[in-house]
Amino acid sequence: MALAEIELCGELIIAASNAEDRLSLESIDEVLRVAEARTDTAGP
């Protein structure tokens, strides 16, 4: 689990460094794949 968290943190750092301004909450959710996690845990 820690490795996945480190990977997501790295992706967030990369996204932030490429952004011209602050990342929006929607951008952060996209980078962290929040919507995917929600659908995965929702189940059938």
Rank of each mutant, 00 (worst) to 15 (best):
L8N: 11
L23Q: 12
T39C: 04
P44H: 06
G43R: 03
I6L: 06
G43H: 03
D21R: 15
N18K: 15
V34D: 02
V31W: 01
A15G: 05
I13T: 06
L32A: 06
D40I: 03
T39D: 05
L25V: 15
E20G: 13
A35H: 08
M1T: 05
L8T: 08
R22G: 04
E20D: 14
D29R: 15
L12H: 12
L8M: 09
E26K: 10
A4Y: 01
R33T: 01
A4T: 03
I13K: 02
V34T: 02
I14M: 06
D29Y: 03
E26Q: 14
L25Y: 01
L8D: 05
R33P: 00
E26T: 08
E30D: 12
S17I: 10
T41V: 10
E11Q: 13
L3W: 10
E20W: 13
A37T: 08
R38T: 03
T41A: 08
L8Y: 08
E30M: 11
R33S: 10
T39S: 11
L3H: 12
L23W: 04
S24V: 11
T41Y: 02
G10H: 05
T39Q: 09
I6W: 05
C9G: 07
S24H: 02
R22D: 13
P44W: 09
L8W: 10
I28E: 01
R22M: 08
A15E: 15
I14Q: 12
E5I: 00
G10L: 01
D21V: 09
D29T: 07
V31G: 06
L23F: 01
M1N: 08
N18M: 14
P44C: 08
A16D: 13
S17D: 14
N18S: 15
A37W: 00
G43P: 00
L3P: 00
L23I: 11
I6T: 03
G43C: 04
L8V: 05
G43L: 10
I6A: 10
L32D: 05
T39R: 13
D40Y: 03
T41P: 00
D29E: 09
